[in-house]
């Protein structure tokens, strides 16, 4: 469904992974490293339904730890849409991590439909591509 929404919005998935059943942070960390180990990415989307029993804080903590280990450091937009147990704590942690480590993280909760978050990802990814192209031309950073 996430993939359908990304494609409907005009995006092209470069890589894909998923987890289920309340995995430990380490597993999500490794998945993140593997999924983002590609050149030329223009965005990272972490989208899932409102979880029933998956600990959102634990799993997204794994995501951030994985993100920290990705080289070169991701400068592309990251969109996260999730809900479920400990979502609020998780989003607080993510906002802090984004600020501290200068990640471009955009957070959406259950009030935002998955498809809307996917559209947002594609939009941000397009903007990022335009800015990166400008950067190459001008030879200086935009922000």
């Amino acid at each position: 469904m996430v993939m359908d929404s990304v494609i409907d919005a005009g995006g092209r998935p470069a890589n894909y992974t998923e987890y289920s059943g309340n995995p430990p942070a380490e597993k999500v960390q490794k998945l993140t490293k593997i999924a983002l180990d590609r050149e030329g990415l223009s965005g990272c989307l972490v989208a899932g339904a409102v979880a029933n029993f998956t600990d959102i804080h634990e799993t997204l903590r794994g995501f951030v730890e994985g993100l920290r280990q990705v080289r070169p450091k991701p400068t592309y937009p990251i969109v996260i849409r999730r809900g479920g147990p400990k979502q609020e704590e998780a989003y607080e942690m993510l906002a802090k991590a984004a600020k501290k480590e200068d990640f471009d993280i955009h957070l959406f909760g259950p009030e935002t439909p998955i498809s809307v978050a996917c559209q947002k990802m594609v939009e941000l990814s397009e903007q990022f591509k335009v800015q990166s192209a400008k950067f190459k031309v001008n030879g200086k950073k935009q922000f």
């Binding site: 469904m1 899932g48 339904a49 409102v50 979880a51 029933n52 029993f53 479920g84 998955i114």
Partner: peptide, 11 residues
């Protein structure tokens, strides 16, 4: 999917 049960419930 369990997640989609909740997602549909919410919608």
């Amino acid at each position: 999917s369990g997640g989609m049960c909740s997602e549909l419930g919410l919608l």
